[in-house]
Structure formats: C-alpha cells, structure tokens
Amino acid sequence: SEFQINEQVLASWSDSRFYPAKVTAVNKDGTYTVKFYDGVVQTVKHIHVKA
C-alpha cells in the first residue's frame, strides 16, 4: 500500500523489529525515507513499512 509524507507508520529496524516512524519522503524507486522517534533517518523498502 502507498504511504504519504508525514504519515505515522511502523518501519523495520536492523533487528527486524518494527518501530514507530514518520514518512519523510516517498522515493521513485519504491522506497520510503522514514524518521524514527529517536531522530534516526533511514531509507527502507516498502515491504519494511506497515501501518
């Protein structure tokens, strides 16, 4: 599913667990740039983002 900029989502971290994050960019290659609550910004594949 498509997510929008500033949408609150759950994004997987390197430990494969999902954490609350905010979408900061929707990228043309189908990835999302997300910002976790601790301030870390990461680009993740769409399969690693869920509502």
Results as ranks from 00 to 15, higher is better:
1 S>Q: 12
1 S>V: 10
1 S>L: 11
1 S>W: 07
1 S>N: 10
1 S>A: 13
2 E>S: 13
2 E>I: 13
2 E>W: 09
2 E>C: 15
2 E>Y: 12
2 E>N: 11
2 E>V: 11
2 E>P: 12
3 F>W: 09
3 F>N: 03
3 F>K: 01
3 F>R: 00
3 F>L: 02
4 Q>M: 10
4 Q>N: 09
4 Q>T: 10
4 Q>S: 11
4 Q>P: 06
4 Q>D: 07
5 I>D: 04
5 I>F: 06
5 I>Y: 06
5 I>S: 02
5 I>Q: 05
5 I>V: 14
5 I>G: 00
6 N>Y: 08
6 N>K: 05
6 N>F: 08
6 N>P: 02
6 N>A: 08
7 E>D: 15
7 E>I: 12
7 E>K: 03
7 E>H: 04
8 Q>M: 14
8 Q>S: 13
8 Q>A: 12
8 Q>P: 09
8 Q>C: 15
8 Q>E: 13
8 Q>R: 07
8 Q>F: 13
8 Q>D: 14
8 Q>G: 08
9 V>M: 02
9 V>D: 02
9 V>S: 01
9 V>E: 03
9 V>C: 04
9 V>L: 01
9 V>Y: 01
9 V>Q: 02
10 L>A: 02
10 L>C: 15
10 L>K: 00
10 L>S: 06
10 L>F: 11
10 L>I: 07
11 A>E: 03
11 A>I: 10
11 A>T: 04
11 A>S: 03
11 A>C: 09
11 A>W: 03
11 A>M: 04
12 S>W: 12
12 S>M: 15
12 S>Q: 15
12 S>E: 14
12 S>C: 14
12 S>L: 15
12 S>N: 04
12 S>A: 14
13 W>P: 07
13 W>K: 15
13 W>Q: 09
13 W>H: 08
13 W>N: 10
13 W>M: 14
14 S>R: 13
14 S>L: 12
14 S>K: 13
14 S>F: 09
14 S>P: 09
14 S>G: 15
14 S>D: 13
14 S>T: 13
14 S>C: 14
14 S>N: 14
14 S>E: 12
15 D>K: 02
15 D>M: 02
15 D>F: 01
15 D>T: 03
15 D>Q: 05
15 D>E: 10
15 D>C: 09
16 S>F: 08
16 S>W: 07
16 S>Y: 08
16 S>E: 14
16 S>T: 11
17 R>C: 15
17 R>S: 11
17 R>T: 13
17 R>N: 14
17 R>P: 13
17 R>Q: 11
17 R>W: 09
18 F>N: 02
18 F>L: 08
18 F>C: 09
18 F>A: 00
18 F>G: 00
18 F>W: 15
18 F>V: 05
18 F>K: 01
19 Y>S: 06
19 Y>K: 08
19 Y>D: 02
19 Y>V: 09
19 Y>H: 08
19 Y>T: 05
19 Y>I: 09
19 Y>P: 01
19 Y>Q: 08
20 P>F: 06
20 P>K: 04
20 P>C: 08
21 A>G: 07
21 A>M: 04
21 A>T: 02
21 A>E: 03
21 A>N: 04
21 A>F: 05
21 A>V: 03
21 A>P: 02
21 A>K: 02
22 K>D: 05
22 K>R: 11
22 K>Q: 13
23 V>T: 02
23 V>K: 00
23 V>S: 01
23 V>C: 01
23 V>M: 01
23 V>A: 01
24 T>G: 01
24 T>Y: 07
24 T>H: 05
24 T>V: 15
24 T>Q: 09
24 T>W: 04
24 T>E: 10
24 T>M: 15
24 T>R: 00
25 A>R: 08
25 A>T: 07
25 A>E: 07
26 V>N: 07
26 V>L: 06
26 V>H: 07
26 V>K: 08
26 V>P: 00
26 V>A: 06
26 V>D: 05
26 V>M: 06
27 N>M: 05
27 N>A: 04
27 N>L: 06
27 N>P: 01
27 N>G: 08
27 N>T: 04
27 N>Q: 05
27 N>K: 01
27 N>S: 04
28 K>V: 10
28 K>N: 10
28 K>W: 09
28 K>E: 13
28 K>T: 10
28 K>C: 10
29 D>G: 05
29 D>V: 00
29 D>E: 05
29 D>K: 03
29 D>P: 01
29 D>C: 03
29 D>Q: 01
29 D>L: 03
29 D>W: 04
30 G>K: 06
30 G>V: 03
30 G>N: 06
30 G>I: 00
30 G>T: 03
31 T>K: 01
31 T>S: 12
31 T>E: 02
31 T>P: 03
31 T>I: 02
31 T>Q: 02
31 T>M: 02
32 Y>A: 01
32 Y>I: 11
32 Y>P: 00
32 Y>F: 08
33 T>Y: 04
33 T>Q: 11
33 T>F: 03
33 T>H: 00
33 T>G: 01
33 T>E: 10
33 T>I: 07
34 V>G: 01
34 V>W: 00
34 V>Y: 02
34 V>D: 00
34 V>M: 00
34 V>S: 00
34 V>A: 00
34 V>L: 07
34 V>F: 03
35 K>Q: 15
35 K>A: 12
35 K>V: 12
35 K>E: 15
35 K>N: 04
35 K>D: 04
35 K>T: 10
35 K>C: 12
36 F>G: 02
36 F>C: 06
36 F>L: 04
36 F>D: 00
36 F>R: 08
36 F>V: 00
37 Y>C: 14
37 Y>N: 09
37 Y>F: 13
37 Y>A: 12
37 Y>H: 12
38 D>A: 02
38 D>G: 10
38 D>M: 07
39 G>H: 04
39 G>E: 03
39 G>I: 03
39 G>Y: 02
39 G>T: 02
40 V>H: 13
40 V>G: 08
40 V>T: 15
41 V>C: 07
41 V>F: 09
41 V>M: 07
41 V>D: 03
41 V>R: 04
42 Q>I: 15
42 Q>M: 14
42 Q>K: 15
42 Q>R: 15
43 T>P: 00
43 T>H: 08
43 T>A: 05
43 T>K: 11
43 T>R: 08
43 T>G: 02
44 V>T: 02
44 V>M: 06
44 V>K: 04
44 V>A: 01
44 V>G: 03
44 V>S: 01
44 V>Y: 03
45 K>Y: 11
45 K>E: 10
45 K>L: 14
45 K>C: 12
45 K>H: 11
45 K>D: 10
46 H>C: 13
46 H>V: 12
46 H>L: 10
46 H>K: 15
46 H>I: 11
46 H>D: 12
46 H>N: 13
47 I>V: 10
47 I>N: 13
47 I>Q: 12
47 I>L: 11
47 I>E: 14
47 I>R: 09
47 I>G: 13
48 H>Q: 14
48 H>R: 09
48 H>T: 07
48 H>W: 11
49 V>K: 14
49 V>L: 12
49 V>W: 01
49 V>C: 07
50 K>S: 11
50 K>A: 09
50 K>C: 12
50 K>L: 15
50 K>D: 08
50 K>H: 10
51 A>L: 12
51 A>Y: 09
51 A>F: 08
51 A>S: 13
51 A>E: 09
51 A>P: 12
51 A>H: 14
